[in-house]
Simulated scan of single mutants.
Amino acid sequence: MTGPREEIMQTRRSFSKQTLATAVLAAGSILPARVLAAPAVKTVRLADQPGAEVDYAAVWIAEGLGYFEEEGIKIDRRSYANGPAAMLDFPNQSIDAVMAAIVPFMQFAARGGEFKLIMSLTKYNAPLVGPKKYTSYKELDGKRVGSPGIGTVHDAVLGYVEETQQIRLQHVFAKITDFAVMIEKGEIEAFIGWEPASATTIALNPALHYVAQLPPIPDMESLGLVFQPKIAKDDPDLIVRFVRATLRGVDFIKANSKEKTAELVAKKMNDAKAQPVVVNALGSVKLTDPRLDMPSTRILLKVIAKQGKIPPDLVADVDGWIGKYLDYSFLDRAEASLKKT
C-alpha cells in the first residue's frame, strides 16, 4: 500500500514521461516539415534569343516539367536579338544570366567584361539555309549570305569557311526573323542561323532546304550559360539549383525520342503544330554535353581574332584565357547531388 507522498511522486513521474513523449512527437511532426520545405522562390532574369527554343531545349523542358519550380526558381525570360545584344546589358545587372554562344561571351571578356561561365548547353547550332540549287558553302562563293550579327558564333563560322575553303562571302547582317523575307526578295541568297528559326523558315518556303545542317567544325561548341559574378559569390546555391534542374532536362532528352522532346519544345513555342518543325531542327544541335568542347572553341576564338574582333594576343593560350571565366564547380555539385537521388 502506498502513502500520499509516494502517490505524488508517481504522478509526477507519469506526468514527466507524458510531457516528454508529447514533446518528442511534436518535434517529430515539426522537424521533417522543416527538412522537406521547398526553398524560397527566387526569380532568375534569363536572357536568350527569339526563335531559339530548340537550342535551349534542356532549360525549357526542365521548366515545362516543373524542375525549376521544385528547385524554388522562377524564370523571367528576356529575349534579345542575339547574344552580343544581351551581353551589352549584362554589366548593368538588369539580367542575372545569359544563354548565348561562346563567341559573344569571349568578345565581352576581351572588352573587360566579367562573368562566370557555368556550362555548355548546345553544340553545333549553325545551319546554313538556302535555295535547293545550292548544296555546299563553296557554291555560295561571292554571294550575299545573311548573318545574325557580327559578334555571333554564326558569323565566326562564315569566317572559318572563308578561310578553310578559300572563298569569299558577302556578310549581310540582320535579325534572324527577317531572313525569310530577305531571301524571298532576293536580298540574300542564303543565311546561317539557329533553331528552330531556321527549320521554321524551311517549313514556310518549300524552295528552301538545309544547304548544310551542321557546321564544318567537328563537335562545334556553340551555346552556354553565364551568371553574374555577384550571384556566384553571394548565392552559389541558386546556380547549383539552376544547373541541377537543367541537367534533369538533359536527362529527359537522353531518355526520350526526338518526337517527345519536340512535343515539349513546341509547347514552349505556344504552337503544338510546330512539333514536326522542331523534330527537323533537332538535327542541327547536340543538347546533351554540359562541358565545353575545347578543340572547336580554340578554332572559333582564333577565327574571330583573325577577323579583328578580339586582340590576337588573347588567343595565344585559349585554354588559359577561358579558364579565367569557366567555373565547373556548380556543375560538379549539381551532378553529384543528382547521383545521390
Rank of each mutant, 00 (worst) to 15 (best):
I188L: 02
G146W: 01
R298K: 14
G159S: 07
E69S: 13
P215N: 03
S198I: 00
P206Y: 10
K309M: 11
D289I: 13
V129G: 06
G142V: 08
E335V: 14
G64W: 07
T261Y: 06
K143M: 11
G151V: 05
V153P: 07
I30K: 08
T177S: 13
A109Y: 07
K185D: 08
E71L: 08
A156M: 07
I183A: 05
T164H: 04
V24M: 15
M182D: 05
P84K: 06
F173N: 09
P311Q: 11
V98P: 02
V285M: 09
A190T: 00
A245W: 02
H209M: 03
K143A: 10
I239K: 00
V226H: 05
D327G: 13
N270L: 10
L300R: 02
L314G: 02
P84W: 00
R298Y: 05
L326T: 10
A57K: 04
D332N: 14
V54Y: 01
I102R: 08
I217T: 02
V157K: 01
F90S: 03
L20I: 15
K175W: 10
G283R: 04
T135G: 13
I176N: 02
V211Y: 02
P84D: 03
I253T: 09
A81H: 08
V98G: 06
P215L: 05
A23I: 15
W321M: 11
E6L: 15
I322C: 09
G66Q: 07
G193P: 03
L140F: 07
Q165R: 05
S198R: 01
M106F: 15
V303D: 06
V129Q: 02
K133A: 10
E221P: 02
E189R: 05
F15H: 13
V35F: 14
A47D: 05
M182S: 04
K324H: 15
D155H: 10
V98Q: 01
T200K: 07
L20H: 12
V278S: 08
I322V: 15
T288W: 10
